[in-house]
Amino acid sequence: MGALSIRNVKKSFGNTHILKGIDLEIEKGQFLILVGPSGCGKSTLLNMIAGLDDITSGEIAIGDRVVNKLSPKDRDIAMVFQSYALYPNMTVRKNIAFGLDIRKVPKPEQEEIIARVAKTLQIEHLLDRKPMQLSGGQRQRVAMGRALARNPTLFLFDEPLSNLDAKLRVEMRSEIKLLHQRLGTTIVYVTHDQIEAMTLGDRIAVMKDGEVRQFGSPQQIYDAPADLYVAGFIGSPSMNFIPVQLREEDGHAVVELDNGRAVQKVRLSPISDSQRAFVGKQVVLGIRPEQLTDPESAHSEHGNLQTLQATVAITEPTGPDTLVTVTFNGIKTVARCHPRAAGAPGQQVELTLDPTKALLFDPTSEKRLA
């Protein structure tokens, strides 16, 4: 039995289906990210785990208990909200102690818990301040402290960093990750930010339209996305998608890329059975920007790099590298290059592709051709 089991959970309002049969399971100490765009159902699912929303059908178990009928206070969970939800008239100390008071924890034990939590989150010097005297990051620490004081089986985070500025979000991401590593807590974390998902979670559920499109580790989802939606959602900049016709030569998948001046043949990995069924048909070639780069920056474990010529349309310096937009088969394609090799708009550049990293997708079902 895992720390959290979600079995065929559905949620409907009349004929509107919000969740369409969710199945997820995580073990004790794992960090699960529910990620997807607004309206995909991730916050609804979190509220159902918390007991703030009813389940239409299915089953949710926390530890070895099915909690469908239990009230939030009986589920042994603690929730950190996007809005912090702190009591403005109470000090930090009293905000953290509030749940302990409700559960009638003795005062000496409360003080020990508050001291431990404050030290963990480095907010000892803030205990006698009120929320209005705190920055956004400090308020978020207090909200986390209140949850930690409970010492629950499961922590639920509902987009806790979305109200913070970009720099503070990065800092708080690191703090949450360190906190998880130190305490070994089980966390379910909702976000629409795929960078947060990749950096924080050890399991990610990518959601769209009330369904989980892929569930796995961050690296699995990045390297082997299940479909075009997951491939495009995870990664920044997102994966390039180029329509190509698939051919087979000497047991390898082969496609052609037209740069507007010449057609270039690209030999990919050995062809699979699922790919062979599409020979002679149009498929979608998926290439991540870092897999299309300048020759100096390119490297491959397999040593089978392919050279392509292209014309620079746009350059976007980011500091350590430059995003270079070129065109293949009429599609704007982004390459990630070293700044000194990026070229200038209108200039011809040489790019290197690692064909072992290129993916092929069925344009009709949008599934990856494994």
Score class of each variant (00 low, 15 high):
G201H: 06
K208D: 14
V206R: 02
Q219E: 14
P160L: 10
S174R: 15
D193V: 03
I204L: 13
D158M: 04
K208N: 15
L200W: 00
G216M: 10
R182N: 15
L183Q: 12
K177P: 02
P218Y: 04
V170C: 02
Q219R: 13
V188F: 03
R173P: 05
E159Y: 08
M198P: 01
G210W: 02
E175D: 06
Y222M: 12
G184D: 12
L183R: 11
S162D: 05
A205M: 02
I195A: 13
G210C: 04
T199A: 13
H180Q: 13
G201R: 02
I221D: 00
Q219L: 15
A166E: 12
V212W: 04
V206K: 01
I204E: 08
A166Q: 08
H180E: 03
D158L: 06
G201L: 06
R213A: 10
V190H: 06
I176Y: 01
H192V: 12
T191R: 10
I204V: 15
A166V: 15
T185P: 00
Q219C: 00
P160E: 06
E211L: 15
G216S: 10
G184C: 11
V206P: 01
M172I: 10
I204R: 05
I195W: 04
S217A: 14
R173W: 08
E159F: 08
V188K: 01
D193H: 05
G184A: 13
I176F: 00
F215I: 13
P160S: 08
H180C: 03
V170T: 13
D193P: 03
L179C: 11
Q220L: 12
L164D: 04
E196F: 01
Q214Y: 08
T185N: 11
E211R: 14
G201A: 12
E159N: 11
E211F: 01
I187F: 14
D209M: 12
S162L: 02
A205E: 05
L200H: 03
G216I: 08
T191F: 03
T191I: 10
S162A: 14
D209S: 15
D202H: 02
I204C: 11
E196Q: 10
